[in-house]
Each structure stands twice: as structure tokens, then as C-alpha cells.
Write a protein that binds this DNA or RNA. Structure first.
Length: 379
DNA sequence: AATACGGGGTT
DNA sequence: AACCCAGTATT
């Protein structure tokens, strides 16, 4: 692989893509711009790794702010390894796919403790690390270490599937796409070439309304030739999302709110959260409150869409004496186990720092809004 | 080969 | 509102 010199149309396409990148590269905080890259400069592997993990199934626009925050707070992989996992999870809140954050910490710890803080440089070694799969291993090897690796992400999948009008539906079609990308990938500068392809996929060869008029490889594109650009890549039909219902418990006392830590597996694993009725483990929640009391039920305060189902959330509000709740603490702790563990009283004023996943943050902000309104009416 | 796993951006 | 996104791990 990669022994033969690239010839023919593949070489022509690759050259046009590379040339386009010189003047049209997106400026991104983890990236070395093409003119400096061509002078031999490489980005910090820690930055490449962190950005690649964040970018898994996540748009560039959503990642930039988190990336800046993370590298300011943990400037090196060793700093990250020295952090508490709970702080990393809280900082990740809102970005989704929280297994990434747990694997981030695992990987930082491994690299710091077993590799002396130096990331491995080969694709196969990178593939061993937690949270790094075939795409990310290839991307880091190419971008951070200048290795020739065949990088295939969703952008490149789309670009290449259109160029060759590959009609085998994904994921089976990925084999032909990877082979075609292998043909295009140069011996030197595979990292910039991959990023050049990704930029074209993102900015030109977009999923909907591709901008073929400004595409540097339009003349080579089999999909464009037939005007059926948007029919590639071919994907399997998607399934309908079922709707589930669940109930969250807003347990407030003396300016504090009761939060739990969710179990280590399943939805939003390991994240701080409002206590709930175990909707994640069941078709629907069971609505059972964690203790007897005067609960006010507010129906359907939040709707939230996950990958494989939607959730309609009711909020049960309990406002009472902290001492009364504490006097029944053993039962409260036991019942909190249904959705998590380690219940804590969290000051309402510091709720934004709790690191709640979006689903709970939305519910909390609904509750805070209602609380202010109620207090105003009492005056 | 299928499924679990979030949530924001874009059209 | 549907579709998509610098995928990975588990089943």
C-alpha cells in the first residue's frame, strides 16, 4: 500500500484538492494553517487528540468553545490526567456522548502514566487507546505525526462517494470509499490532505445544497455529471423514534437542590443529574417519587430528542424543610439509587457549575424561571 | 451487522 | 421538523 506512485486521475484530483486548501483552509484553533504546515510545522498532538475526540459526531461550531475551555484549563495531557474525572465530565456537559469524556480521562491517564506523557505516533498504537477508533487513529497519525494514513470521516465519505458515484449503501459502501481515499492519499502531507478533503466536504460538498459551482474537482465528479449529487452517499433508511415519558424530581430546600450522580453505564452515565423516575432503563418512567410529600406535578415541561428515542419530561416539585428531608435521609439515599448515587445538596446559585447534561439543564432552567415568577407573585 | 450513545447546527 | 455531524464501543 502506498508503494506505487499516484498517477492518472487520482493524482489530478488530489492535486486540485490540495491546491484548493492553500487558499481556503478553515482557520481552527487546533489547526496549523497550510503555509506553516508546508514549512514543516506540526500541531500539538494533545490538541489534535482532544479536538478529534470532541469532533466525533459533533459539529465544528459546537466544539470550538469547549476546545478553548479545555486547553485553557488543562494545557497538557499530564494536566488532564491530574484532574478529577468528575471535573472533566462537568466541563464536557452539553457536548453529548459522555463516554467520550470518560475515555478522555482514561486515555490521558494512560498516556501520562505509561507513555511518559507522549502520545504514540503510529496508527496501530493509537488504535489501542480508549476512545480512539479507526477514524481518529488515522487522523491523529496523519495530522499530528505526518504519517501516511487513510482518513475517512463523514465529510470524506460524502466527497468520495459523490466523486465515484458509489452506490453501495453505507456502511457496506465504506470499503469502496476507503479504497478510493487510499488511491487519493499522498505519501507526504496526508494530514493536510485529509483536512483539505474534510474542508471541501464541510464547505463545498455539503450534505444538502452542495456548492458544485465553486468545487475544484467538479469536472471529475461522477455524481455531478448526472446531476444526482444529493443521492450520494447512499444510506440505509432510518427508523422512527419512539416517544418515552419520564419524571424529574426538583427537591429544593433552603436554597439548595438535590442532585445525584448517574450510574456508570447507560444514558448520560456518570453525569450529575436531577433525580428521576428511571425512564432511561424502562419504556417509560414509573413516576414514583423518592419520598412521601407534597409534590406539585408540572406536565410536559421539557421535550428532548435523543439518538434513538424522544423524551417528554414531567417535573415533580417538592419545596420543603431541609431538616425534614435529612431526618428521612436513609430513605432518600436509597431511593435516589434508582437513578444514581451520592445525592448532594447543591446551592441553587451555583447550578450552572453543576455540569448538568442539557436535558437536565433545560429542566432546571424551567424550574428556576417558575420559581422567580412565583416569588414575584408573592410580593 | 445492528444498536446504544447527545445535542446543537443547518436547511 | 428533518437531517446531519472530524465515530466508538458493545452486542
Amino acid at each position: 500500500m502506498g508503494v506505487d506512485k499516484i498517477t492518472g486521475e487520482a493524482a489530478e484530483i488530489a492535486a486540485k484538492i490540495s491546491a484548493h486548501y492553500v487558499d481556503n483552509a478553515r482557520q481552527l484553533p487546533w489547526r496549523v494553517p497550510p503555509h506553516r504546515s508546508q514549512a514543516g510545522e506540526r500541531p500539538d498532538p494533545y490538541h489534535v487528540w482532544l479536538s478529534e475526540i470532541m469532533l466525533q459526531q459533533t459539529t465544528v461550531a459546537a466544539v470550538i468553545g469547549y476546545f478553548e475551555t479545555f486547553i485553557r484549563r488543562w494545557p497538557t495531557v499530564t494536566d488532564m490526567a491530574a484532574a478529577r474525572e468528575s471535573d472533566i465530565l462537568a466541563a464536557w456537559a452539553g457536548l453529548g456522548y459522555y463516554a467520550r469524556a470518560r475515555n478522555l480521562f482514561k486515555c490521558a491517564t494512560y498516556v501520562t502514566e505509561k507513555r511518559d506523557g507522549i502520545f504514540p505516533q503510529t496508527e496501530s498504537e493509537l488504535l489501542e487507546l480508549p476512545g480512539i477508533g479507526p477514524y481518529t487513529a488515522a487522523a491523529i497519525a496523519a495530522i499530528a505525526f505526518g504519517q501516511r494514513a487513510v482518513v475517512v470521516d463523514a465529510n470524506i465519505e460524502r466527497l468520495v462517494a459523490r466523486l465515484h458515484a458509489i452506490s453501495t449503501p453505507l456502511p457496506a459502501g465504506k470499503k469502496a470509499i476507503r479504497a478510493a481515499m487510499d488511491d487519493l492519499t499522498p505519501e507526504d502531507g496526508a494530514g493536510d490532505f485529509a483536512q483539505a478533503c474534510m474542508d471541501i466536504g464541510a464547505s463545498v460538498c455539503s450534505a444538502r445544497s452542495p456548492k458544485c459551482a465553486i468545487c475544484p474537482v467538479r469536472s471529475h465528479c461522477r455524481a455531478h455529471a448526472t446531476g444526482k449529487m444529493e443521492e450520494f452517499p447512499v444510506k440505509p433508511p432510518k427508523k422512527a423514534k419512539p416517544v418515552r415519558t419520564g419524571r424529574f424530581f426538583w427537591i429544593e430546600s433552603a436554597g439548595n437542590i438535590l442532585l445525584v450522580t448517574r450510574p456508570g453505564k447507560g444514558m448520560l452515565a456518570g453525569m450529575r443529574a436531577l433525580p428521576d423516575d428511571n425512564w432511561a432503563a424502562q419504556r417509560n418512567g414509573h413516576g414514583q417519587a423518592p419520598f412521601q410529600g407534597n409534590w406539585q406535578i408540572h406536565e410536559n415541561v421539557v421535550q428532548h430528542s435523543f439518538t434513538h428515542f424522544s423524551l417528554e419530561v414531567d417535573l415533580a416539585v417538592y419545596h420543603g424543610d431541609k431538616i425534614a428531608i435529612n431526618s428521612d435521609e436513609s430513605r432518600l439515599v436509597d431511593l435516589a439509587e434508582q437513578v444514581g448515587h451520592a445525592p448532594v445538596w447543591w446551592p441553587l446559585a451555583q447550578l450552572p457549575e453543576a455540569g448538568l447534561p442539557t436535558l437536565f439543564a433545560k429542566s432546571a432552567s424551567w424550574a428556576m424561571k417558575r420559581k422567580k415568577k412565583t416569588e414575584k407573585e408573592l410580593q
